[in-house]
Write a protein that binds this DNA or RNA. Structure first.
Lengths: 159, 159
DNA sequence: TATGCAACTGCAACCAGTTGCAGGAGACAT
DNA sequence: ATGTCTCCTGCAACTGGTTGCAGTTGCATA
């Protein structure tokens, strides 16, 4: 719980208030070891405080995202998940658009890309938690008569 | 309109039907030179056929996305746009999370990344139309006392 | 051309997420 | 400890997008 005080300080320093609701949401995120949806956080929170409103959860998540304390990832079909940002634990996800399997991707690939983009365009990309869609090895075998082409997708970003 | 027949064929070959509604949506997308939202397509369509339902537009776009005839991109804050896929015209977007400026990114950066990922993980990523969020050169100057850290985002993909 | 099946449409109900507002609570200064 | 200002919360209304359903239509076959 010592990191809780740190978070409270970050909130105050940026002109935000450390309310009990926010601390509960922060607690849920910090103690979850993976991704949580807004609905899951809401359900957890209602157990000890039934008067919460889902809009409070969304608004708090937006603030935390802005402060870069949590990351937001769209893991496929409309499930936006949130995760506590633990520094030095950068990871990415490869999500198969056929079977929905999720595998991890080492950060080094994106690191190179980020450095390259920054060097040549002066644009500093946020590439620390990407979800990349495609076809996994297993599903590619069933598709092997398909020729090369592609549709696409774009992130849900931090504006 | 010769490419229309080609599209009709693609639809039929994959067990889909070429309905007038779908052809109108295809027409809107093909004649637009940029990105269109579902709502914009819907509005255009209602002019000549007022009985359309927005759900038809969404369902059609989902089919076309599946068939890789259109690409879907989330250009920042909740504006999902659709674009007719013109082969050999791959492009990406760098979107500043501070000022929302959009610049283009050459495909070569992503191409390298895709090849690398495929070689080492056997996962074939869909990297042909990405939206990457971050800070543009101008906005970075105002942020230059900030240290390195980052939140993130993830694509809305083709499942 | 007639027939039959499966896919598609429009409708309506629904769900997730957002927004405006009035009251309530945090935090800073005194 | 008290006051005041501003931010935050919960509520309710709303919007964008999705889903189930029953009737319709495309299209393959004969």
């Amino acid at each position: 719980m010592s990191c809780e005080k740190e978070t409270v300080q970050v909130l105050r320093e940026t002109g935000h208030k450390a309310t009990p609701q926010r601390l509960m949401i922060l607690g849920s995120l910090r103690h979850a070891d993976g991704h949580l949806t807004a609905g899951e956080i809401f359900d957890q929170m209602r157990v000890e405080y039934p008067y919460v409103d889902i809009s409070t959860v969304y608004r708090t998540l937006a603030v935390l995202k802005d402060l870069r304390l949590v990351s937001e990832t769209d893991m496929g079909t409309g499930d936006t998940t949130y995760e506590w940002v633990r520094e030095h634990r950068l990871h990415h996800h490869l999500i198969c658009r056929n079977c929905d399997a999720v595998t991890s991707l080492d950060h080094k690939y994106l690191e190179d890309l980020g450095a390259e983009i920054m060097a040549e365009t002066s644009f500093k990309p946020d590439l620390d938690h990407f979800a990349i869609f495609g076809l996994c090895a297993t599903c590619r075998e069933s598709y092997d008569n398909d020729s090369d082409n592609g549709s696409s997708n774009g992130p849900g970003g931090a504006a």
